[in-house]
Protein backbone atom coordinates (compact mmCIF):
# COMPACT_ATOMS: atom_id res chain seq x y z
CA UNK A 1 0.00 0.00 0.00
CA UNK A 2 1.49 3.26 -1.13
CA UNK A 3 -0.87 5.71 0.52
CA UNK A 4 -0.04 7.42 3.77
CA UNK A 5 -3.52 8.88 4.17
CA UNK A 6 -6.83 7.53 2.91
CA UNK A 7 -10.23 9.06 3.49
CA UNK A 8 -13.43 7.21 2.65
CA UNK A 9 -16.52 9.40 2.38
CA UNK A 10 -15.73 11.39 5.49
CA UNK A 11 -18.67 13.49 6.64
CA UNK A 12 -18.74 15.75 9.69
CA UNK A 13 -21.86 17.59 10.79
CA UNK A 14 -22.22 20.03 13.67
CA UNK A 15 -25.88 19.95 14.73
CA UNK A 16 -27.23 19.72 11.21
CA UNK A 17 -24.57 21.91 9.57
CA UNK A 18 -22.29 19.88 7.31
CA UNK A 19 -18.70 21.08 7.61
CA UNK A 20 -17.19 18.20 5.61
CA UNK A 21 -19.32 16.42 3.06
CA UNK A 22 -18.52 12.86 1.90
CA UNK A 23 -14.85 13.70 1.42
CA UNK A 24 -12.62 11.06 -0.17
CA UNK A 25 -8.90 11.34 -0.73
CA UNK A 26 -5.69 9.36 -1.00
CA UNK A 27 -2.31 10.90 -0.32
CA UNK A 28 0.82 9.30 -1.72
CA UNK A 29 3.50 8.42 0.80
CA UNK A 30 6.50 10.78 0.91
CA UNK A 31 4.77 13.71 -0.76
CA UNK A 32 3.69 17.16 0.37
CA UNK A 33 -0.05 17.56 0.05
CA UNK A 34 -1.62 21.00 0.30
CA UNK A 35 -5.25 21.67 1.19
CA UNK A 36 -6.48 25.11 0.20
CA UNK A 37 -9.80 26.72 0.91
CA UNK A 38 -11.38 29.92 2.20
CA UNK A 39 -12.22 30.44 5.88
CA UNK A 40 -14.73 27.87 7.05
CA UNK A 41 -14.07 25.50 4.13
CA UNK A 42 -13.53 22.58 6.52
CA UNK A 43 -9.75 22.24 6.49
CA UNK A 44 -9.23 22.23 10.24
CA UNK A 45 -12.16 19.88 10.67
CA UNK A 46 -10.50 17.41 8.31
CA UNK A 47 -7.19 17.65 10.17
CA UNK A 48 -8.94 17.13 13.50
CA UNK A 49 -10.57 13.99 12.17
CA UNK A 50 -7.28 12.67 10.78
CA UNK A 51 -5.46 13.36 14.05
CA UNK A 52 -8.20 11.61 16.10
CA UNK A 53 -9.26 14.78 17.92
CA UNK A 54 -12.71 14.49 16.42
CA UNK A 55 -14.80 11.58 15.25
CA UNK A 56 -16.33 11.79 11.80
CA UNK A 57 -20.12 11.64 11.66
CA UNK A 58 -19.85 9.14 8.80
CA UNK A 59 -17.06 7.37 6.98
CA UNK A 60 -13.62 6.25 8.04
CA UNK A 61 -10.07 7.43 7.44
CA UNK A 62 -6.75 5.63 7.59
CA UNK A 63 -3.33 6.99 8.44
CA UNK A 64 -0.48 4.64 7.57
CA UNK A 65 -3.09 1.91 7.40
CA UNK A 66 -4.56 2.55 10.87
CA UNK A 67 -8.20 3.49 11.17
CA UNK A 68 -8.89 6.73 13.03
CA UNK A 69 -12.06 5.10 14.38
CA UNK A 70 -10.69 1.86 15.75
CA UNK A 71 -6.93 2.32 16.04
CA UNK A 72 -6.56 5.90 17.27
CA UNK A 73 -3.58 5.10 19.43
CA UNK A 74 -1.66 3.57 16.50
CA UNK A 75 -2.54 6.59 14.37
CA UNK A 76 -1.24 8.97 17.05
CA UNK A 77 1.99 7.01 17.32
CA UNK A 78 2.93 7.84 13.73
CA UNK A 79 1.69 11.41 13.36
CA UNK A 80 3.05 14.83 14.24
CA UNK A 81 0.64 17.73 14.51
CA UNK A 82 1.06 21.49 14.22
CA UNK A 83 -2.34 22.92 15.08
CA UNK A 84 -3.75 26.13 13.64
CA UNK A 85 -3.22 27.88 16.96
CA UNK A 86 -0.07 27.37 19.00
CA UNK A 87 -0.77 25.22 22.04
CA UNK A 88 2.52 25.43 23.86
CA UNK A 89 2.72 25.02 27.60
CA UNK A 90 3.64 28.47 28.87
CA UNK A 91 4.66 27.11 32.27
CA UNK A 92 7.34 24.91 30.75
CA UNK A 93 10.52 26.09 29.05
CA UNK A 94 11.01 25.48 25.33
CA UNK A 95 13.12 22.44 26.05
CA UNK A 96 10.69 21.07 28.64
CA UNK A 97 7.85 21.42 26.13
CA UNK A 98 9.74 19.16 23.75
CA UNK A 99 10.77 16.74 26.49
CA UNK A 100 7.20 16.32 27.77
CA UNK A 101 6.07 15.57 24.25
CA UNK A 102 8.80 12.95 23.91
CA UNK A 103 7.78 11.31 27.20
CA UNK A 104 4.15 11.22 26.11
CA UNK A 105 5.44 9.28 23.12
CA UNK A 106 7.13 6.87 25.50
CA UNK A 107 10.66 7.99 24.63
CA UNK A 108 13.51 7.76 27.15
CA UNK A 109 15.83 10.68 27.95
CA UNK A 110 18.77 8.92 26.26
CA UNK A 111 16.76 8.85 23.03
CA UNK A 112 15.05 12.21 23.19
CA UNK A 113 17.81 14.49 24.49
CA UNK A 114 20.05 14.26 21.41
CA UNK A 115 17.01 14.52 19.15
CA UNK A 116 15.84 17.66 20.98
CA UNK A 117 19.33 19.20 20.71
CA UNK A 118 19.25 18.59 16.99
CA UNK A 119 15.76 20.09 16.54
CA UNK A 120 16.54 23.15 18.66
CA UNK A 121 19.60 23.68 16.52
CA UNK A 122 17.63 23.23 13.32
CA UNK A 123 14.93 25.71 14.34
CA UNK A 124 17.43 28.22 15.67
CA UNK A 125 16.06 28.05 19.20
CA UNK A 126 19.03 26.42 20.94
CA UNK A 127 20.05 29.70 22.57
CA UNK A 128 16.57 30.22 24.04
CA UNK A 129 15.81 26.65 25.07
CA UNK A 130 15.59 27.46 28.78
CA UNK A 131 13.20 30.37 28.27
CA UNK A 132 9.43 30.22 28.50
CA UNK A 133 7.49 30.34 25.23
CA UNK A 134 5.52 33.48 26.11
CA UNK A 135 8.79 35.41 25.91
CA UNK A 136 9.15 34.27 22.28
CA UNK A 137 8.04 36.08 19.14
CA UNK A 138 5.21 34.55 17.13
CA UNK A 139 7.66 33.10 14.64
CA UNK A 140 9.78 31.49 17.34
CA UNK A 141 6.71 29.96 18.98
CA UNK A 142 5.62 28.57 15.65
CA UNK A 143 9.05 27.03 15.07
CA UNK A 144 8.90 25.51 18.53
CA UNK A 145 5.53 23.92 17.75
CA UNK A 146 6.97 22.50 14.55
CA UNK A 147 10.00 21.17 16.43
CA UNK A 148 7.69 19.58 18.99
CA UNK A 149 5.75 17.82 16.24
CA UNK A 150 9.01 16.32 14.95
CA UNK A 151 10.53 15.08 18.23
CA UNK A 152 9.28 11.52 17.84
CA UNK A 153 10.11 11.35 14.10
CA UNK A 154 6.55 10.98 12.83
CA UNK A 155 5.79 9.35 9.51
CA UNK A 156 2.97 11.73 8.69
CA UNK A 157 3.12 15.41 9.61
CA UNK A 158 -0.03 17.54 9.75
CA UNK A 159 0.45 21.30 9.54
CA UNK A 160 -2.60 23.54 9.87
CA UNK A 161 -1.66 26.93 8.41
CA UNK A 162 1.96 26.61 9.51
CA UNK A 163 3.13 30.03 8.35
CA UNK A 164 0.18 32.28 9.16
CA UNK A 165 1.44 35.34 10.98
CA UNK A 166 5.10 34.83 10.12
CA UNK A 167 7.37 37.36 8.44
CA UNK A 168 8.75 36.51 4.96
CA UNK A 169 12.10 35.32 6.36
CA UNK A 170 10.51 32.98 8.88
CA UNK A 171 8.12 31.68 6.24
CA UNK A 172 10.92 30.88 3.89
CA UNK A 173 13.01 29.21 6.55
CA UNK A 174 10.01 27.10 7.56
CA UNK A 175 9.47 26.19 3.91
CA UNK A 176 13.06 25.00 3.76
CA UNK A 177 12.46 22.75 6.79
CA UNK A 178 9.33 21.33 5.23
CA UNK A 179 11.07 20.72 1.90
CA UNK A 180 13.80 18.93 3.81
CA UNK A 181 11.21 16.57 5.28
CA UNK A 182 9.74 15.54 1.95
CA UNK A 183 10.33 11.88 1.11
CA UNK A 184 11.31 10.98 4.69
CA UNK A 185 7.72 11.63 5.71
CA UNK A 186 4.36 12.55 4.28
CA UNK A 187 3.31 16.14 4.85
CA UNK A 188 -0.33 17.24 4.90
CA UNK A 189 -0.68 20.99 5.16
CA UNK A 190 -3.37 23.62 4.86
CA UNK A 191 -2.69 27.17 3.82
CA UNK A 192 -4.26 30.38 2.58
CA UNK A 193 -1.10 31.37 0.74
CA UNK A 194 -1.02 30.42 -2.92
CA UNK A 195 2.71 31.02 -3.20
CA UNK A 196 3.21 28.64 -0.33
CA UNK A 197 1.19 25.91 -1.99
CA UNK A 198 2.96 26.61 -5.27
CA UNK A 199 6.40 26.45 -3.66
CA UNK A 200 5.89 23.44 -1.41
CA UNK A 201 3.20 21.08 -2.52
CA UNK A 202 3.49 18.14 -4.87
CA UNK A 203 -0.25 18.08 -5.02
CA UNK A 204 -2.85 20.70 -4.25
CA UNK A 205 -6.53 20.32 -3.47
CA UNK A 206 -8.87 23.26 -3.33
CA UNK A 207 -11.93 22.73 -1.17
CA UNK A 208 -14.93 24.76 -0.10
CA UNK A 209 -18.12 24.01 1.81
CA UNK A 210 -16.68 20.66 2.81
CA UNK A 211 -16.15 19.33 -0.71
CA UNK A 212 -13.28 19.14 -3.16
CA UNK A 213 -13.37 21.61 -6.05
CA UNK A 214 -10.08 20.92 -7.83
CA UNK A 215 -7.15 18.59 -7.41
CA UNK A 216 -3.75 18.31 -9.10
CA UNK A 217 -0.26 19.77 -9.22
CA UNK A 218 0.07 23.55 -9.26
CA UNK A 219 0.88 23.41 -12.99
CA UNK A 220 -2.12 21.20 -13.76
CA UNK A 221 -4.49 23.49 -11.89
CA UNK A 222 -3.17 26.58 -13.64
CA UNK A 223 -3.35 24.79 -16.98
CA UNK A 224 -6.91 23.70 -16.50
CA UNK A 225 -7.86 27.28 -15.77
CA UNK A 226 -5.87 28.95 -18.53
CA UNK A 227 -9.06 28.43 -20.51
CA UNK A 228 -9.96 31.76 -19.00
CA UNK A 229 -7.86 33.48 -21.76
CA UNK A 230 -7.18 36.77 -20.19
CA UNK A 231 -5.10 39.27 -22.14
CA UNK A 232 -3.54 42.46 -20.95
CA UNK A 233 -3.64 45.25 -23.51
CA UNK A 234 -2.12 48.68 -23.01
CA UNK A 235 -3.24 51.42 -25.43
CA UNK A 236 -1.12 54.27 -26.65
CA UNK A 237 -4.18 56.47 -27.36
CA UNK A 238 -7.95 56.33 -27.87
CA UNK A 239 -8.45 54.26 -24.72
CA UNK A 240 -11.96 55.67 -24.16
CA UNK A 241 -13.09 54.79 -27.66
CA UNK A 242 -11.72 51.27 -27.32
CA UNK A 243 -13.58 50.78 -24.07
CA UNK A 244 -16.84 51.25 -25.94
CA UNK A 245 -15.72 49.05 -28.81
CA UNK A 246 -14.73 46.25 -26.47
CA UNK A 247 -17.98 46.47 -24.57
CA UNK A 248 -19.86 45.86 -27.82
CA UNK A 249 -17.98 42.70 -28.88
CA UNK A 250 -19.91 39.45 -28.27
CA UNK A 251 -16.84 37.27 -27.61
CA UNK A 252 -15.43 39.59 -24.92
CA UNK A 253 -16.60 38.24 -21.59
CA UNK A 254 -15.13 40.87 -19.35
CA UNK A 255 -13.17 44.10 -19.41
CA UNK A 256 -11.32 45.67 -16.49
CA UNK A 257 -9.72 49.03 -17.01
CA UNK A 258 -6.99 50.81 -15.13
CA UNK A 259 -6.12 53.99 -17.06
CA UNK A 260 -4.86 52.87 -20.42
CA UNK A 261 -4.30 49.29 -19.24
CA UNK A 262 -7.11 46.84 -19.99
CA UNK A 263 -7.65 43.30 -18.87
CA UNK A 264 -9.75 41.52 -21.43
CA UNK A 265 -11.23 38.12 -20.82
CA UNK A 266 -12.25 36.27 -23.97
CA UNK A 267 -14.83 33.55 -24.45
CA UNK A 268 -12.34 31.10 -25.97
CA UNK A 269 -8.95 30.73 -27.58
CA UNK A 270 -10.16 31.49 -31.12
CA UNK A 271 -11.49 34.89 -30.11
CA UNK A 272 -8.05 36.46 -30.15
CA UNK A 273 -8.16 36.78 -33.95
CA UNK A 274 -11.47 38.74 -34.26
CA UNK A 275 -10.33 40.84 -31.30
CA UNK A 276 -7.19 41.87 -33.16
CA UNK A 277 -9.35 42.78 -36.18
CA UNK A 278 -11.09 45.40 -34.05
CA UNK A 279 -7.94 46.93 -32.65
CA UNK A 280 -5.57 49.00 -34.70
CA UNK A 281 -1.98 47.90 -34.21
CA UNK A 282 -0.63 51.43 -34.05
CA UNK A 283 -2.79 52.24 -31.00
CA UNK A 284 -1.44 49.33 -28.98
CA UNK A 285 1.62 49.81 -26.84
CA UNK A 286 1.72 46.28 -25.43
CA UNK A 287 -0.37 43.10 -25.51
CA UNK A 288 0.28 39.91 -23.60
CA UNK A 289 -1.41 36.76 -22.43
CA UNK A 290 -1.92 36.82 -18.71
CA UNK A 291 -0.76 33.55 -17.13
CA UNK A 292 -3.25 32.49 -14.51
CA UNK A 293 -1.84 32.37 -11.00
CA UNK A 294 -2.92 29.85 -8.45
CA UNK A 295 -4.74 32.72 -6.84
CA UNK A 296 -6.84 33.23 -9.98
CA UNK A 297 -7.70 29.56 -9.94
CA UNK A 298 -8.61 29.78 -6.28
CA UNK A 299 -10.77 32.88 -6.67
CA UNK A 300 -12.53 31.57 -9.75
CA UNK A 301 -13.40 28.36 -7.87
CA UNK A 302 -14.38 29.75 -4.52
CA UNK A 303 -15.85 33.12 -5.54
CA UNK A 304 -14.87 36.62 -4.59
CA UNK A 305 -17.26 37.17 -1.74
CA UNK A 306 -15.91 37.31 1.80
CA UNK A 307 -17.35 34.64 4.08
CA UNK A 308 -19.36 35.85 7.00
Amino acid sequence: MNFAITLHDITKSYDGFTAVDAFSLQVQRGTVFGLLGPNGAGKTTLIKILTTLMRPTLGDAFVEGHSVLTAGKEVRRVIGVVPQENNLDRYLTARENLALHARLHGMRPAAYNPRIDQLLEMTGLAGRQHDFPDTFSGGMQRRLVVARALVHEPRVLFLDEPTTGLDPQSRRSLWDHIRGLRRTMTVFLTTHYMDEADALCDRIMIMDHGTCLADGTAAQLKDAFSRAHTYQVEFRNDADRYQEVLAGLPFVKGVERDGSLFQITLADEESIKPLMDHLSGSDIRRICLKEPTLEDVFISLTGEKVRE
Binding site: R76, V81, P83, N87, D89, H101, L104, H105
Partner: peptide, 14 residues
Protein backbone atom coordinates in the same frame (compact mmCIF):
# COMPACT_ATOMS: atom_id res chain seq x y z
CA UNK B 1 -6.84 28.58 27.35
CA UNK B 2 -3.62 26.81 26.64
CA UNK B 3 -5.23 23.93 24.74
CA UNK B 4 -2.48 21.65 25.96
CA UNK B 5 -5.06 18.90 26.39
CA UNK B 6 -5.28 18.88 22.60
CA UNK B 7 -1.51 18.48 22.42
CA UNK B 8 -1.66 15.54 24.84
CA UNK B 9 -4.45 14.01 22.78
CA UNK B 10 -2.45 13.80 19.56
CA UNK B 11 0.18 11.65 21.31
CA UNK B 12 -0.33 7.93 21.99
CA UNK B 13 -1.58 8.54 25.55
CA UNK B 14 -5.25 7.82 26.17
Amino acid sequence: VQRTIEEYRVTPVT
